[in-house]
Amino acid sequence: MAIKFNRVDFKYKGEGKKGYLALSNISLSIQGEGEFITLIGETGSGKTTLVQHMNALLVADSGSVDIYGIKVEKEAVKKKKIRLNPIRKKVGLVFQFPEYQLFEETVLKDITFGPKNFGVPEKDAVETAKSVIKIVGLDESYLERSPFNLSGGEKKRVSIAGILAMEPDILILDEPTSGLDPLGRNALLKVFFDIHQKLNKTVIIITHDMNTVYEYAKRVLVMRDSYLVYDGDPVNLFTSKNIENWNLDVPDVLDLTNKLERDLGISLKTRPRSASDLTKALEEVLR
């Protein structure tokens, strides 16, 4: 198990004694390869806090988080008994806004910034940059450009490349598609799915888009008011009654399937999770 949460609580300190409880009694495990996980829940439910524990940016108040065999605990971190950088190299976290991390004059320098911090020699870092820029769907000509003269979608890709260049086993993306139009979103989702499939990395995506969840995720985590209320596959999630209580939308494909079955009396043989699956399932029935 690459990451293991054991009864984790976390509270943001604030004015007054209360603070803000962000994680309550979270237990879960994540594997170091081959997972495609989506993390959903309302704003303020603790999603971002949860992923920031996964690369030790935040440290649990109680309970423990094991990351690649290193037990990340408050006392140990405070006394600097454990080194956090090896953890952050293994578990790459891309923040919601690329503006949070882009700062160099050129895209190349920005992408190599991470690897160089982890002690990778300049020459190797440049080679890696050349390969990751292609993975995120841009070409090498971008490397010499300024990261600030790019479109929103391109900036996002560069920021992802900057994390991929660290060659992490697990890639976590905090709302990577928010603000993009549908074409931009779909293209980027395809990039994530390729990273997951071709490089066999574990990918974790925070999203509000239920269509993404339903089409791509092998596993869904649902956060609600600091609790992890669901950890399982998307089909069971969206057919359960809880989705209304948790303020989750029904994915379009599921909604349409339900309508077709209800209004036209069609019964499909499979549970389609994308438009093309649904078409194939209909084809089978109608032919």
Binding site: P182, L183, D252, A275
Partner: peptide, 27 residues
């Protein structure tokens, strides 16, 4: 350059596969 609503997308996919079912089509 936008994404069509799902029913229309499915409809077009069905048409390109030459599936013609009037009931499903009109629905």
């Amino acid at each position: 350059n936008l994404e069509m609503l799902l029913p229309l997308r499915v409809l077009r996919l069905l048409e390109s596969e030459n599936v013609k079912d009037e009931k499903v089509r009109s629905y």
